[in-house]
Design a protein around this nucleic acid. Structure first.
Length: 593
RNA sequence: GGGGGCGUAGCUCAAUUGGUUAGAGUACCAGACUGUCGAUCUGGUUGUUGCGGGUUCGAGUCCCGUCGCUCCCGCCA
């Protein structure tokens, strides 16, 4: 149908007879001559209709509207004089058209398809007409970058001896972790498949199967509440390797990230990617996914206030807590409203309140608490935090965990407000040595990563008497404060795996029911193995600088997990329900739900 | 489950202290125009101010409820 696309014609093509197809981008009708910008995936080309060339083509062009699909035939010409359009790649030429065919008309688009305007349009409208939204230059770029990066990943992993293997989408519900999406079975009434939250057990069993190195761009499903960087179905670059140490995983992923960054046009990154332990990340950044693009680190001041007269600090330290602070440099003039917001946030993070010092123009400190400080304490504080005119110091006095988390959140807000975060930077870091367990709300022990994670062997002795201090062979890869992925060395010894389930207080019959297959598999010569999974959507979001994960997914769900274009989820026929032995019970008047 | 923001023309937004017939840009329709590229010019159409109720002489504006979208906390092994 076409001899060229709308993005390829150049000066050199002058005089060529061509046929182009595409969408009408804009029509500029001068009464006589008519210009139509024709657009396709590859670019935009100006087509000119002159009544003197073909009265018939000109008359048809006059009727064209935005998003009509047309085919034009004509001759490539250099644009006269200084009429070149430097904004587009084909701006030196135009196609003088003598024949046009309208391949399809279009209704008036419900929103403008020009990027600058479209990004302001309410997202539910964009999602309802996603096929139009995807027609935009910006979205096309994102989706193509997704393709290019997955291709680069495949090529890289193929080169590193990884084998791409698909694992089932219909599988078995996992006990811990996120809520599962369920599929009823017709053949076995009353039973259900679950969609995988991750191919975790399959990939481990592929190691038992001797595949040695597996990868998959794996679709994962988690029925939890959505965020701007979370979708109920998302993709992971999922990998598993046999006979390896964590160093091998770091090396493979470092190399892959180099390729990805290059593909995305962000140049070379330094490897090996830096590493920080979980404990240090929490101490210095108050987060297990530290944004290391800027400073404002958290300082421990407990030693300065050990013998303080300020009772609020003194009591906390006596009780085993800490006094910590960040110096939000340059924010001494932050308005009261901001301080109120931050105080509320600190309280939300579990603190009793938020103490602060503003360093005023004349160098004096404005603060409700400094009057309780001794001269020595003030001097030490000044020295420790490098306090200067215009600074704002935020204090947290509480348990180490609460102080870290609260200051970690405030640090991000402060960094943003102070404008000290380099938006063009790509700051990667590994976070290593995560704890093996954490306590949930009921005080029960649960896996921080997942129950197949190997403890560090030197900590094994502590498994029974002090499980919370046991470190895992688990690690996350973090970019600009966003968790890109995580992995671990797995347990390959069935005895240790059983011991782990016992530590988690999972009853014996449940272990057998839910993990029997894995333990059995480990019993048939499972090699030492480990792996990692990287969130592809999040990675892409950062690579293209998108605000939300939805901008790098062709057909995403909205915050209510609905597909507005397809109108899913939806009710189904009574017969369909009957087939799978499902009865829908909705209590319309219920107070709850 | 909790907190914040938003909801006015197809789209993006405005509307003073509660006060006349709810406006602008754009889109759309018609006309004019032979070198534009955000074409321009003239004219025109377009409204359940999300929905329901209340206060008031009078509500886009105030109150109550409700719905929708979105951001955050919880949640996400």
């Amino acid at each position: 149908m076409r001899t060229h696309t709308c993005g390829v014609l150049r000066k050199e093509d002058d005089g060529q007879q061509v046929r182009l197809c595409g969408w009408v981008d804009t029509v500029r009708d001068h009464g006589g001559v008519i210009f139509i910008d024709l657009r396709d995936r590859y670019g935009r080309t100006q087509v000119i209709f002159d009544p003197d060339d073909s009265r018939e083509a000109w008359a048809q062009a006059e009727k064209c509207r935005a998003e009509y699909v047309i085919q034009v035939e004509g001759v490539v010409e250099l644009r006269p004089g200084d009429m070149a359009n430097k904004k587009i790649a084909t701006g030196d030429i135009e196609v003088r058209c003598n024949s046009i065919r309208v391949l399809n008309k279009s209704n008036t688009p419900p929103f403008p398809l020009e990027d600058a305007q479209a990004i302001k349009v309410s997202e539910d409208l964009r999602l309802t007409y996603r096929y139009l939204d995807l027609r935009r230059v910006g979205m096309q770029k994102n989706i193509r970058m997704r393709h290019k990066i997955t291709q680069a990943v495949r090529a890289y992993l193929d080169g590193a001896e990884f084998v791409e293997i698909e694992t089932p989408i219909m599988t078995k519900s996992t006990p811990e972790g996120a809520r599962d999406y369920l599929i009823p079975s017709r053949v076995a009434p009353g039973t259900f498949y679950a969609l995988p939250q991750a191919p975790q057990q399959y990939k481990q069993l592929l190691m038992v199967a001797g595949m040695d190195r597996y990868f998959q761009i794996a679709r994962c499903f988690r029925d939890e509440d959505l965020r701007s960087d979370r979708q109920p179905e998302f993709s992971q670059i999922d990998m598993e390797m046999s006979f390896i140490t964590p160093e091998d995983i770091f090396a493979v992923v470092d190399g892959m990230l180099v390729e990805i960054m290059k593909t995305a046009g962000h140049g070379d990154i330094q490897t090996p990617i830096q590493r920080i332990t979980y404990a240090e990340a929490m101490d210095r950044y108050g987060s297990d996914k530290p944004d290391i693009r800027f400073g404002m680190e958290i300082n421990d001041l407990s030693d300065l206030f050990e013998k303080t007269d300020f009772k609020v600090f003194g009591r906390v330290i006596e009780g085993g807590g800490v006094v910590k602070a960040i110096n939000a440099k340059g924010l001494g003039g932050a308005p009261i409203r901001v301080m109120d917001d931050w105080t509320a946030m600190a309280k939300d993070a579990g603190l009793g309140g938020l103490a602060y010092i503003r360093v005023q123009e004349d160098g004096t400190w404005k603060s409700p608490i400094v009057k309780f400080f001794s001269d020595a304490e003030k001097a030490a504080l000044q020295e420790r935090l490098g306090m200067e005119v215009g600074d704002l110091v935020l204090f947290a006095a509480d348990s180490k965990e609460k102080a870290n988390v609260a200051l970690g959140r405030l640090r991000l807000l402060a960094g943003e407000m102070a404008g000290v975060i380099d938006k063009k930077a790509f700051a990667f870091t590994w976070v290593t040595d995560f704890p093996l367990f954490e306590r949930n709300d009921e005080g029960r022990l649960q896996s921080m990563h997942h129950p197949f994670t190997s403890p560090r062997f030197e900590d094994l002795a502590l498994l029974d008497e002090a499980p919370e201090t046991v470190r895992a062979q688990a690690y996350d890869i973090v970019l600009n404060g966003v968790e890109l992925g995580g992995g671990s060395i797995r347990i390959h010894d069935p005895a240790l795996q059983e011991r782990m389930f016992k530590a988690l207080q999972i009853p014996a019959d449940e272990i057998k029911d839910r993990f029997g297959h894995l333990i059995r598999g480990l019993g048939f010569g499972a090699p030492p193995h480990g792996g990692i999974a990287l969130g592809l959507d999040r990675l892409l979001m950062l690579m293209v600088g998108a605000e939300t994960i939805r901008d790098v997914i062709a057909f995403p769900k909205n915050q209510k997990a609905q597909d507005l274009m397809m109108n899913a989820p939806a009710r189904v026929d009574a017969q369909q329900l009957k087939d799978v032995y499902i009865e829908v019970i909705i209590d319309e008047d219920a107070d709850e739900n």
